[in-house]
């Protein structure tokens, strides 16, 4: 499947990590958010919204004008941890705000509110395959519903009892995707079947795959075949050189 990448945006909790990945000045302080809203939001939601805003700006596309796909393995994992501790400690009543901010579409909901975006907003999760499934869902929308779609992959660091492993987190990658065009930066994704691959033991990080693709789109001369799922699932992306 092929699509064009009209804009890219990233955001990071830590500026040092942003620089390590070659995305300096990519904090999570979205211009869309008032200080009051920023305080109410998790880092997951702030990361996702800030990256989404940057991808739209990069593509010169109005934030209210496109449908969105939010992709994350675990979503609002810090709020979930707080609520689970409350429940285990019989600390009731639960905060109603924390409760409604624990749903997986929290970021999607705030995105639609702050951008006044009334288009469809999708929130998906697919474990290690979250990035490639987000790309597939977006490609299907491009083939059947829309000319442009905003895909945002994000992951906040999980608190101690829920830590998933040594995977990259506390960052978000957004791409404003469009129908394939010869004149734009395009990406082709495909699956190469792996025979008898067992379940992988290492947790494979969707957001780091998204970061790698974001870098490849920026510097297509250096790019080659990039894995976008665990080896067992065999999904790859290649940047196709435009004019």
């Amino acid at each position: 499947m092929r699509f064009s990448v009209l804009g890219v945006g990233t955001s990071f909790v830590e500026s040092a990590m942003a620089e390590t990945h070659g995305f300096a000045d990519c904090d999570m302080n979205s211009q869309l958010l008032s200080p009051r809203l920023r305080r109410r939001m998790s880092s997951a939601t702030r990361l996702a919204l800030t990256a989404g805003e940057r991808a739209c700006a990069d593509a010169n596309v109005d934030v209210s004008s496109v449908p969105s796909v939010f992709a994350s393995i675990a979503g609002e994992i810090k709020v979930t941890d707080t609520l689970c501790r409350n429940i285990a400690g019989r600390d009731f009543p639960l905060s109603p705000t924390q409760f409604h901010n624990s749903v997986h579409n929290t970021a999607a909901g705030y995105w639609s509110m702050v951008t006044k975006n009334k288009h469809a907003a999708q929130a998906l999760g697919a474990g290690e395959n979250t990035w490639v499934m987000g790309l597939l869902e977006s490609c299907c929308q491009l083939r059947s519903l829309t000319d442009k779609v905003l895909l945002i992959c994000y992951e906040e660091a999980a608190p101690e009892p829920l830590v998933m492993g040594e995977q990259i987190s506390d960052c978000a990658v957004a791409m404003l995707l469009g129908i394939p065009s010869d004149k734009k930066r395009s990406v082709c994704i495909y699956q190469q079947r792996v025979e008898h691959a067992g379940a992988s033991t290492e947790l494979w990080s969707p957001v780091s795959a998204a970061l790698a693709l974001a870098k490849a789109v920026r510097h297509p001369q250096n790019s080659s075949k990039l894995p976008i799922s665990s080896t067992a699932h065999g999904w790859y992306a290649e940047v196709v050189h435009g004019e």
Partner: peptide
């Protein structure tokens, strides 16, 4: 975590 709690667990 991944196969029980995470959103994709039941689909997987």
């Amino acid at each position: 975590f991944l196969n029980q709690h995470a959103w994709g667990a039941t689909a997987d």
